[in-house]
Design a protein around this nucleic acid. Structure first.
Lengths: 189, 189
DNA sequence: ACCTGAACACCGTTCAAGT
DNA sequence: ACCTGAACACCGTTCAAGT
């Protein structure tokens, strides 16, 4: 009897491929992971992946969506902690997916699907950060602009390998310049 | 008589390939430009490029070095203008090479040569910005940290297509938060 | 519906051969 | 020293064929 017919349903099999993809993309990078390698890791023939995903970019987007969901959940649990702690935690989470930021940016010009995901991601992050800053008593008009600054700094820290000490220094300097005491507990919580 | 023997010396020919590469990389991106296409644009056989450059990454590094030199020169001419104007001018220059930032970041893990270039680039930009901030009366210890913030914001603005208005808004907000009046003329000059 | 082997058109790079 | 045609080992993707 064939291995994967009816034994595993579509959703489960897709999840399996996705799990292998997440691991390989993180370990070796997106470009260095071939569809053949991904298929082998998931235990299928190279072209079978195309039955579950449109193309390689589509696999990436699915991996990114999983990571985003996981990250937002992990962050919401820490809602009562000081902003600097939450920022450090966020960077810790992102670290695992460090290479994927630049992968997304690199594909931005070539893939409409990637660009859509990227724009949506920015919108989400910006609105979360704006709300966070307003919660810390920054006027809304300022908070909107500061959120961009904060997002770009986090993206920079994300994309560049740096020691944890350096990262904390730059992150807390940014918060300090915006006018937030990094170690103060979250207000209004 | 063969076309390119002794008619053009090594340096000139290399420059020709480099010029074609700069144009193609900017217009279509690094990944989408094949060595064959580059060779065709320079009027040689695909493998001839390898006589002038070690590999494709090596071509990129040469293009980047040219751009860096050109950019630093253009910026030094404007040394007397207000910081916001110089920042906008810098972003204008970078715009032409927008896709190459992310290309560099994407190649960071895979290529030692690219990583070396990238680290050197950051050192240069950081020291220029630190000096600039010190010149604007920011204490040195603060200036070092602020330079990172400023660099990451500029990199973010560089990598993400945005309207000129939005860019100016975010850039001047950053300078404002650091404690600099963006429109004040350069002091001490 | 699910999966595959074989092929397609590409890619960056190498190598032996020419001048 | 300079340049090339032909080949190498890859790549993402497609297609006809199997169950």
């Amino acid at each position: 009897m064939p291995r994967n017919k009816r034994h595993i349903d579509r959703k489960e099999k897709k999840e399996e491929i996705l799990k292998a993809a997440a691991r390989l993309f993180r370990e070796q990078g997106f470009a260095s992971t071939s569809m053949s390698q991904l298929a082998a890791a998931a235990g299928v023939a190279p072209n079978t992946v195309y039955w579950y995903f449109e193309n390689k970019d589509d696999v990436l987007i699915a991996v990114l969506n999983n990571a985003l969901e996981h990250g937002m959940q992990a962050l919401s649990i820490r809602h009562a902690e000081p902003l600097i702690e939450r920022g450090k935690a966020l960077l810790g989470l992102l670290e695992d997916y460090g290479s994927l930021v630049t992968t997304v940016h690199a594909l931005l010009q070539e893939s409409d699907a990637i660009r859509e995901w990227h724009d949506r991601f920015h919108q989400i992050v910006l609105s979360i950060m704006t709300a966070e800053l307003i919660n810390h008593k920054i006027p809304e008009a300022e908070a909107r602009k500061d959120a961009w600054v904060l997002m770009y700094v986090i993206e920079g820290l994300w994309a560049h390998p740096q020691s944890a000490d350096e990262r904390e220094l730059i992150l807390s300097q940014t918060l300090y310049r915006i006018g937030i005491d990094p170690s103060a507990p979250a207000p209004g919580g």
